[in-house]
Design a protein around this nucleic acid. Structure first.
Lengths: 344, 344
DNA sequence: TTCCGTAACCCAAACGTTTGGGCCAAACGT
DNA sequence: ACGTTTGGCCCAAACGTTTGGGTTACGGAA
C-alpha cells in the first residue's frame, strides 16, 4: 500500500529504474491499455507496466491536475446528506463516479441560499470538473448565473428551468398516488406537499391534483399544505388537517418521512391508519415496508437516478449535448391505505 | 464567481498587474492576515489583498498541493452514508472540516473487506492528508497494517485496538438502557446486539448485560442476538424472540432502526408496544421521537462526535499526541417502554 | 545507392505554488 | 563617516505530470 518513509513512487523513479525517459513511461501508463499511438515497444511497455504495478504507482493528481487543468473531481451539493433520499442518490452518484475513476465531493446546502453560494464556491475552488446539484429550486437565479458563467453542472432529483436534470417522473408519481387512493374510493383527500420551492413536491402535487380533477373531483387549495420534508413537519401539518371538523379520509404526503409524521398524528387523534384513515408517502424508503403499519408509497429508483446524473454529467463534460431524463416511479401499495394485502 | 472564458486568476496574473513578483504576492496572501515575517509593506500588502479579492482569486490546490505535498483533503470511510447515524456523523466531520479550510471525501465501505481496501486505496491515491474510518472492526488487521505503513487516521463511532478514536461511551449507554428497563421492573430481557464485529454493538451489549449482572440478573446468551443495524434485520431477530414460548418482556436494540423493526414484529404478534412489551433503541435518531409510538432511546451526540473526530485528526496531523475520546450518552425515555410520559 | 517512413524513444516546456536565498537601499548605531 | 541591520522585495528551483516536437536507427521502396 503506502510505504512508511519511502519516497513516493513517481513517474521519474520508474523511468530511472528502467533507464527510460519519464515521458515514455507516462505515455505507456496512460495510453489505452494495449498499444497506444505513440507508445513504446511491446517489450518496454510490458516492463514499465510490470514495475509500475509492483511499486504500486499511483499518479499524483496534483501533478496531472496542474498540467491538464482537469481534476477528475465532481462536486455534489445536496440539501442534507442525512436525508435518506439524498444520501441514497449520492451513493448512486458516487458508485458511478468510482467506476469512471472520478471522485466526488459532497456538501450540504441546507436549502439555504447563502450556504449554497459558499459551498459551491468551495467546490469550485477545489477545481471540480463539474457539479451535480440536488437542491435546485424552481426558478433558480443562482443556477442560471452559474450556467452563464460557464460552470458545468446537472441537476438531480429536483429540476429547475431547463438545466439538464435527472429526476423521477414526479407528475406521473403523483398520478399513481391519486389513482390508488381514488381506486379505494377516497374522494375527500389532502396533500402534504413539501416546501413550495422544490419541484419534487410541486410536481407530485400537480400530478395528484390533476388526476383527481380529470375525474371530476376538485382538491381544494386548503387541502394542499406545505411543510418541510421531514417527520416533525409532516406531523404538524397532519395534525392541523385532522383537527379540522371535516377531515379528509386520505392523506398523500409527497415524502415518506412526512408520511411517518402523519402516521404519528393520526395515532394521536385516535385513528387507526389503514381503516379509519389512509396515509401514503413517496419514495418507498426501505423503512416504509418495515414500519409497524407498512406504509404505502411510490417507489423511485433513487440510486439509479444518482447513477444517471453522474453519467449525464460526464457526457456534458465530454462536450455532448444532453437531455434531461425522467425515471418511472411505481406504486407500492401497503397496509397504510387499506386492508392488509401482500406487499410487492 | 467564475468568469466564462477568462484566464483563471493566478498569483502571476495578480503580480503582473501590480508590477510585483509572484513570490511577494504569495507571501502576502499566505502570511497570517496581518504582517507576516517576510511580508511586504503594509501598503503593498493592502494593494495585493484588494486586487486578489476583487478578482476573486482562489489558490489552485493542484499547484499548492504539488509544492507542499499536502492536499488539505480528508478521506472519510463509512459503512454506508445512507445510514442516518453515519451520515449525521459525517455532517459533523464535514462541518468542522469546512471551518478549517479542509475538504472531505466520503466513501462507502459496506462493511466489506475488499471494498474497504479499494476505497482506501482510492482515497490515498487522491493524496488525502489523513483519514477517518467509521467502519472499524474489533481486532482490525487492515487498520493495523495501515498504521504501520504510516498512514494517519482516526476512528469515529467504532473503536478498534488502540487507534485514536472518538466514540460514544457505549458501555455507559448500555448501562443507561439496563438501568431504565430494570427500573421499570423488567427482569426478563433480550438484546438485539448488531453485528459482532462492531464495537458499538458489543460495548452497548456488554454495558447492558453488565448492569443486569451486577443486580443479580443473568441475561442468558440465547437472549443476545446478532443482526445487521437495519430495520429488516431487527424485525427478523425480534420475530424470533417473540416466537419463543417464554418471550422476554423487554427488548433492547442497540440501534434505532433495528428497534423500529422490532416494533413491527411486536405488532405482527399482536402485542401492544409500551404495555404488552417494552422496546427501546439507541442513538435517538430524530425519527424516534416522532414515531406513532415514540421510541425510547439513548441519545448520542452524533454530529459532535463527527466534529471531534475531525479535530482529533487535525491534531494528529499537526504531530501532536492524541487520546481517544468517549462522549456521554443520555437516556431518552418515551412511550415504547412504558406508560406515556412527557418526552425530554 | 539514396531517400523516405516510421517505430521507439528522448527533450523540454508548461501548469501554479511555495520557499530558501539573494540583493538593494534606507535606517540605525557608534 | 562607516559598518551593520533590516525592511522590502526579486530570483529560481522544485513538486509530478502531460504533450508537441525532436532525434535516432532501421527497414523498405525507388
Amino acid at each position: 500500500m503506502a510505504d512508511p518513509k519511502a519516497r513516493p513512487v513517481t513517474l521519474r523513479s520508474i523511468a530511472d529504474q528502467l533507464g527510460l525517459h519519464v515521458s515514455t513511461v507516462s505515455r505507456v501508463l496512460n495510453g489505452p491499455s494495449e498499444g497506444g499511438a505513440r507508445a513504446a515497444s511491446g517489450d518496454t511497455a510490458e516492463r514499465i507496466r510490470r514495475l509500475a504495478a509492483e511499486l504500486g504507482y499511483q499518479p499524483d493528481p496534483h501533478g496531472s491536475g496542474l498540467r491538464t487543468g482537469r481534476s477528475r473531481l465532481v462536486g455534489v451539493l445536496v440539501p442534507r446528506l442525512s436525508d435518506l433520499v439524498l444520501s441514497t442518490i449520492y451513493e448512486g452518484i458516487d458508485e458511478a463516479a468510482g467506476e469512471r475513476g472520478l471522485t466526488t465531493i459532497a456538501a450540504n446546502s441546507l436549502d439555504d441560499d447563502e450556504t449554497r453560494r459558499t459551498r459551491t464556491k468551495m467546490l469550485l475552488a477545489r477545481r471540480v470538473d463539474g457539479l451535480i446539484f440536488g437542491d435546485a429550486r424552481l426558478d433558480d437565479a443562482f443556477l442560471d448565473r452559474l450556467a452563464t458563467d460557464g460552470v458545468r453542472f446537472v441537476l438531480v432529483n429536483r429540476r429547475a428551468g431547463n438545466h439538464p436534470s435527472v429526476t423521477p417522473d414526479d407528475r406521473l408519481g403523483g398520478r399513481l398516488a391519486a389513482e390508488h387512493l381514488l381506486g379505494l374510493g377516497h374522494t375527500d383527500v389532502a396533500v402534504i406537499a413539501g416546501p413550495p420551492f422544490a419541484s419534487t413536491g410541486a410536481d407530485r402535487t400537480a400530478g395528484f391534483v390533476g388526476h383527481y380533477r380529470e375525474h371530476g373531483i376538485r382538491v381544494p387549495d386548503d387541502r394542499v399544505l406545505h411543510s418541510p420534508f421531514d417527520t416533525s413537519g409532516g406531523r404538524a401539518v397532519a395534525d392541523r388537517l385532522l383537527r379540522s371538523p371535516n377531515r379528509p379520509t386520505a392523506i398523500f404526503a409527497v415524502n415518506d418521512f412526512a408520511a411517518i409524521g402523519a402516521l404519528g398524528a393520526a395515532r394521536d387523534h385516535g385513528l387507526h391508519v389503514g381503516t379509519d384513515i389512509a396515509i401514503m408517502g413517496y419514495n418507498d424508503t426501505p423503512l416504509a415496508a418495515e414500519l409497524p403499519i407498512p406504509l404505502t408509497s411510490v417507489a423511485v429508483p433513487m440510486r439509479e437516478i444518482g447513477r444517471r446524473a453522474l453519467e449525464l454529467l460526464t457526457r456534458l463534460l465530454a462536450g455532448e449535448n444532453v437531455d434531461s431524463e425522467r425515471l418511472r416511479p411505481v406504486l407500492a401499495p401497503r397496509a397504510s391505505t387499506g386492508p392488509r394485502r401482500t406487499g410487492p
